[in-house]
Each structure stands twice: as C-alpha cells, then as structure tokens.
Design a protein around this nucleic acid. Structure first.
Lengths: 190, 190
DNA sequence: CGATTCTTTGAAAACAGTCAATCTGTGTGG
DNA sequence: CCACACAGATTGACTGTTTTCAAAGAATCG
C-alpha cells in the first residue's frame, strides 16, 4: 500500500500489517490527466478515491449555467460523490482533475465485504466522516459570519500553497464569488 | 428502547433484538425544557443525543455578537457537537431547546466499548454520517446557487410544518438572513 | 392588562454581481 | 525564437439584492 495512505490511516485508527495487507487487495491505482473526469453528471459513482498526489474539483452547473465548485480534493484526501455512491442514483455532480492526479480506487461493490473482513475499516470511515463533517460545518459558519472579502482573506491565509496551485477563478467559484470580485479584493490587499 | 429509535436504526442497518437490548443499556433518557441548554459554549460535549420529540438549535455568537443558528435538531434526529465530542475540546457552540424536548443520551465514554460489543453500531453511525454529509453538502449548493428569496421559499416548501414550530427570526438566522428581510419576502409571497 | 418579545414597514446605505473593455501571461506552431 | 491565440486576470461604471437603522404594530405570556 502507498505510504501516504498508511500514514493517513494511522492518524485515525490502530491497524496491523495483516489488516493493511487485506485492505491493499481492494485498492487499484489510477491516474488521470489534468481536465480528465473521474465522474460525469449522469454517471453512477461506484468508488471512493484516495488522492495520492494531485488535485480534483467536484462541481456542477447551477441554474444560470455557471460552474459551481462544491469542493476540492488534494493530496491525502478521500473524495467521492456520496449521494450517487450511497443512494445508487445518477450523479448530479462532476469530478474533474485540476492537475495530473494519482489516486487509489476503492470500489464500493466490495466495501461491505472489506468491512466484514477488517472491521477497523468501518471505524476508519466513520471517523473520517466525522472529521469531514466538522470541517463542512465550520465552512457554513464562515459563509454566514464573514463578508466576502473576509472569506477570501481567510481562505488564502489558511491555504497559501493551494492558492498557488489552482486558478483564481476556481477559488472564486468555490467561495461563491464572482472572479471580478476576487480580483478586486486581491488588489485591495496589496 | 424507544420505538422511534428502533425504527430509525432499521432504516440504516439490520439489527437483532439482542443487539438492540445491549444498545439499550448504554442509553439514558433525558428531558429538557424550552430554553434550557443541552450544551453551553466552553463546556465539553460528552454525548450524542437522539431526539425522541421536540426541537433544539445549535448556535453560536458571531463576531458582531449576533446569534447564528448552525442547524436545528428535531424528532428522530441525532444531535451533538462533533468538534467538542471528537477532539475533546471546549465547545464553541451552544445547544438549546426550542421546545420542551425528550432525548436519549448516548455517552461517548462508552461508545467505543459499545461498538466492540455490537459492531453494527459502528456501521450505523458511519451511514448516518454519510447521509448527514450529503444533506449538508446540498445545503452549501443551495446557499451558493439560490438568492435569499429563493432560499427562503425553498425552505418553507421543504419544511412547511417546521416553519410553524419555530419563530421566524430563528429561520432567518439559520438561513443567514436578517429577520427584516425574511419578513419582506413573506409579504411578497402573499 | 402590562411588559416583553417578535414581526412588519420604509428609507438609506453597503456589499457584491454583471457587463464590457483591456491587460497579462503562457503555450503552441511556424 | 517569434508571433499569435487563447485563457485568465484586472478595472471601472452601473445595477440589484440584502442589510441596517428606526419606528410602529402584533402577538404572547405571566
């Protein structure tokens, strides 16, 4: 198994070599190039993906036809489209590579079987979900309590390296702002 | 165990009578009156709560000193403050009853022990978290793609009975709007 | 009924979006 | 290596949505 994933897992749970070995057999490595899609609107999402290296964005087109980025995934994050994955319905969202990206794919078809064999995996994913939930709830807190300008400043302070990696208009979209507005805030900061 | 919780659990996982009986031993029932607090800023959150009947709100004070409601909890929902619960840090949020509320308390101190004895509980909570995550992600989608007026209309259409149960200013706070604005939108609808 | 809490209304102001034009930078092919 | 094309970023004027403030009106509870 890739050392990044092993290290990641150990941040959440204690796991034995034997358990890692079993987990390993359920994973496939996958590479996608910049602008390639991991999932397109209308398709069924059938896997969870661990990003070894790279960056993807999860987005949809809003009622005015604008791309709205729901969130990004980067190195050492799990990414998937839960609504499609869990409810087995066609995805309303797209997942696209922002950079060339290296992933590990964990197919959902065998996920329950894996959890039976290695129950700690169930705990791992429960804990991951809890952490993810905390993060997304904080995001809602910020959306409502900070002005657009404050949100942008906060984002670049919290993610200085990431800000360099992706185009500015994508950060604007993620923050629910127009690219022009972000540009103006940036000018103001200097 | 309360029939509401049994029914709730069975929507997520298959569970035996014996497993329910064990789960039961970890639960305490609890009642709080309108305006009483389940958790106050600064306290450590030590339990997950299942709401049998009633309504609570999870809120904090933003940097301008306004109450910001993060979300509500009603009949047949689990509620807790995950950041405090998981990271064992003082809560930045308050949980307060909006109505007289009847709960089941599941103390976190014994949660791991319960999951060891009844592994299906671990799966239950993983699945609950996944559903919860889908819901909160959709909320972000709506925040960014609908205007304030549209968000309010959508909310009352989706939650007609709930709109009657709580004061309008709380719905405004939950939706991140001023009470005056909600009032104006309401006038416009008629 | 009196007091407090919640809701409504209107006018002025702030914040962020839209549109259109221009500027910058980067990569590609000749 | 240059020229061009195209994607992304910037700027300014104008517009629209939502907030803020203040005051008045309704509803609820002891």
């Amino acid at each position: 198994m890739h050392p990044n994933l092993i290290e990641y897992i150990k941040r959440y749970v204690s796991i034995t070599e034997a358990e890692i070995a079993i987990f390993q057999t359920y994973l496939h490595s996958k590479k996608i190039k910049k602008k390639e899609f991991l999932l397109k609107e209308g398709q069924f999402c059938k896997s969870r993906y661990f990003i070894i290296k790279g960056c993807v964005r999860l987005f949809h087109f809003d009622n005015k036809g604008n791309e709205q980025i729901i969130h990004f995934g980067i190195d050492n994050w799990w990414i998937t489209e839960y609504e499609s994955l869990i409810n087995q319905i066609p995805s309303q969202l797209n997942i696209q590579a922002v950079e060339n990206t290296e992933l590990l794919e964990l197919p959902e078809a065998y996920f329950d079987e894996l959890c039976e064999k290695v129950p700690i995996i169930e705990r791992l994913f429960r804990k991951i979900m809890e952490k993810t939930y905390i993060a997304i709830q904080k995001r809602i807190e910020y959306i409502y309590s900070l002005s657009g300008e404050e949100q942008f400043r906060f984002f670049i302070d919290a993610n200085p390296e990431f800000t360099q990696r992706v185009p500015q208009y994508m950060i604007a979209s993620y923050l629910g702002m127009s690219p022009e507005f972000v540009s103006k805030v940036k000018a103001k900061i200097k």
